[in-house]
């Protein structure tokens, strides 16, 4: 039940964007893909989704090469949330979420209702997209993915362009999905969010794998310094904050981490 990149090499045009990337994502975990701009994060995510075909190596889902899977079957297994919140027509929230059933070729309403309920969209159900805020729109698009009941959720910067409370809110939803057994793979820019919410972090640097492991190891200060060329220190919130967080049902980490940047190396 794993999603694996096996020695993936990927070229876009003349540029080699991924070099020999191997990583195995586990279900029930949030895997964060981080790295500087142009490191190949989105490309890796699209290769894992099957939208980009590696020039060498392959991506396997439960041992099967993803390039050989029928498109519908792949769509049912992997829900992909692209970057941005582009919706061409001013349709109602419910219509967008119902699109999640597309890979199944059915119009079941129960999973759509469940996804709408999971993301607290009940009151917005009939609202046209143009009347939603950025945060609401992001929740609608995630609900679309959930309505397909995929075993894997792959999301490209789902938390970008959201304010702090909506970021935590959506990250919490993704955590719930992972606890429910789905494998969640997200591209993130915010290293603190990756540290606090991910079970595992993959660090990319210029198309190569710079680190892969639990957040505290993969996002160690020396790795950040090497990959991002900045000096930074992690700080951890105190005991009071910990108990407050536990009441909220937030992550199991002993405390929340914040990253303080000290300037270029």
């Amino acid at each position: 039940m794993t999603l694996c990149a096996n020695s993936v090499m990927l070229e876009r045009g003349e540029v080699q964007v991924l070099r020999d990337i191997s990583a195995a994502m586990q279900p029930g975990e949030i895997t964060a893909i981080v790295g500087p701009n142009g490191a190949g994060k989105s490309s890796l995510l699209m290769a894992l989704t099957g939208l980009l075909t590696p020039g060498a190596g392959n991506v396997t889902l439960d041992g099967d090469d993803i390039a050989d899977l029928p498109l519908r079957q792949r769509g049912r297994a992997i829900g992909y949330l692209p970057q941005g919140a582009d919706i061409a027509w001013d349709v109602a929230v419910q219509s967008v979420v119902a699109l999640g059933r597309m890979p199944h070729g059915d119009t079941l309403i129960a999973p759509v209702d469940a996804a709408i309920a999971a993301l607290d969209l009940e009151v917005l159900r009939k609202r046209p997209i143009s009347q939603l805020s950025g945060g609401e729109r992001a929740r609608v698009l995630l609900a679309r993915v959930l309505a397909g009941q995929p075993r894997w959720i792959l999301a490209d910067e789902p938390l970008a362009a959201l304010d702090l409370s909506h970021q935590l809110n959506l990250a919490g939803h993704l955590k719930t999905c992972a606890k429910g057994g789905a494998g969640v793979v997200i591209v993130l820019h915010d290293l603190a969010l990756a540290r606090n919410y991910a079970d595992r972090v993959i660090v990319l640097d210029k198309g190569t794998l710079a680190a892969d492991g639990p957040p505290e190891a993969a996002l160690a200060e020396d790795i950040i310094e090497r990959v991002w060329n900045i000096q930074a220190r992690w700080v951890q919130s105190g005991a009071d904050a910990v108990s407050a967080q536990e009441n909220e049902g937030a992550p199991n980490n002993p405390g929340q981490h914040a990253l303080i940047t000290l300037g270029p190396v």
Binding site: L71, R72, G75, L81, D86, I87, A88, L99, M102
Partner: peptide, 15 residues
């Protein structure tokens, strides 16, 4: 309909 969410999202949904 799937294209409403963009070309990549449509492809990811099996189109």
């Amino acid at each position: 309909d799937a294209l409403t969410l963009g070309e990549e999202a449509a492809r990811s949904m099996g189109i």
